[in-house]
Nucleic acid binder design. Structure first.
Lengths: 235, 235
DNA sequence: CGGAGAATTGACAAGCATCAATCGAGGTGG
DNA sequence: CCACCTCGATTGATGCTTGTCAATTCTCCG
């Protein structure tokens, strides 16, 4: 039965790090946000605090200026799933409709600009390019979510951690293979769908075989990128 | 540290079945598709055939008129992740930008309408309501994806199957608790992130304790909905 | 310097994947 | 119309990865 040649498909066009880089390329959106500037309010949120709650009416949306945010879904028994980490420059809740379907929490102290949804809706209706951009970032969020489903279903703990480290290494805030991890091990565990102890153990293995070195609790130095990529595999 | 009251959040506002029901409610979109009718082409695809491939240039998008489609991501080793099942009435690839990030395959014989992307892009730019609707269905896809991440990371095999059955039971094509499952066990396994044998075993357990009865290979009768809901748990 | 939260490390158990064999159903050809 | 053949589903046995429980160590701040 149908079975396309895998090699031609799996080339990593979905490297999942475009969501941030697209900001640099797209010179337009800052202009659109400029239009919103009048209605935007600068706020600061302390580490661990909630920015908005799952199920709450989505009357505002945000742009993260500085810091790091996690998007979380809570279960009744208190367990939590981190759906996404939001980096500085990214938008929050622009794709939401009616009410938030996840809560947002500050991984560390954050600065955000808060926009009233009415103003954003108006801009979405009036500004085709901005509307198109919001469609794009939402689609890319979906793309990343699908990518991570593959990770969660078919990849081992080692592969997930290697993927995560390489993912973070491609982001900002790191020079020369030194990765800054703003979140806790618990966050990483909840993001990758595993126990915190497993995260610790796998990082220990990577330290053991010299793939990484730990400078501090949330600063990791990549010593052997090839080794990490070998562990991660394709996709 | 921060810990909102779980009960207030977890009320299942994300029942994940809105993607289809929204079509019935929103009387507008058929009108918009009417505008596209001139550029649409009716096509049929046989069971198992590919509609479009991951990584292919997204020059067309589709509306599924009849049948059932699975959205799939392939790995280099041949393993596959079913990201979503598409039901009759739903749109395919409208949120895509540039190139498809998953492939679409016919679960069974399908009828679709194919639209050139150029026409859709034009309509998106000209028709605010249609643009808004596309944003909504994309956001709902993201919502469902996040919901399923919780399922894949934190739920047991029994909980996943119970969730899946109840999900399918809320859909169309079934009367009086009789669920039609157009896809194979392999598809279900790849959708829920487990082995096909586990799917079989759990269904066997449910038959054993009288929660379901199997009318045929892809027709399941729910005998005790409460039991299934108890196994599924909240969310 | 001391305390609290986070991270690490170890021991153990369990759920689930994997391997393997059999069964069943649907479709085709004689 | 029936037998056969092939693909999918089921059922069983076994092992491993990873979650869970528990104790200790580390790190960050006050």
């Amino acid at each position: 039965m149908l079975q396309s040649v895998p090699g031609t498909l799996a080339k990593n066009h979905a490297s999942a790090s475009h969501a941030s880089t697209s900001w640099a390329k797209d010179a337009y959106v800052p202009v659109a946000l400029e239009l919103l500037a009048g209605s935007g309010t600068r706020i600061t949120v302390k580490r661990g605090q909630e920015i908005f709650a799952e199920g709450a009416s989505a009357e505002t949306c945000y742009r993260l200026v500085d810091g790091s945010v996690r998007l979380v879904k809570l279960m009744a028994d208190g367990r939590r799933q981190v759906c996404e980490f939001v980096k500085a420059g990214d938008l929050l809740g622009f794709e939401t409709d009616e009410e938030h379907y996840f809560s947002a929490e500050a991984v560390r102290d954050c600065t955000l600009i808060r926009y009233p949804r009415r103003a954003v809706e108006t801009l979405l209706a009036d500004d085709k390019a901005f509307a198109r951009h919001v469609r794009q970032i939402t689609a890319r969020g979906l793309q990343d979510a699908y990518q991570r489903m593959v990770l969660l279903c078919h990849k081992s703990a080692q592969e997930r951690i290697a993927w995560f480290l390489l993912e973070m290494a491609d982001g900002a805030e790191n020079e020369g293979g030194s990765i800054f991890l703003p979140m806790t091990r618990t966050d990483i565990a909840n993001y990758l769908g595993m126990a915190i102890e497993t995260v610790s153990r796998v990082l220990g293995q990577f330290k053991q075989n010299g793939a990484i070195e730990q400078k501090s609790l949330n600063r990791i130095q990549v010593m052997d990128r090839d080794a990490l990529e070998a562990v991660r595999g394709e996709v």
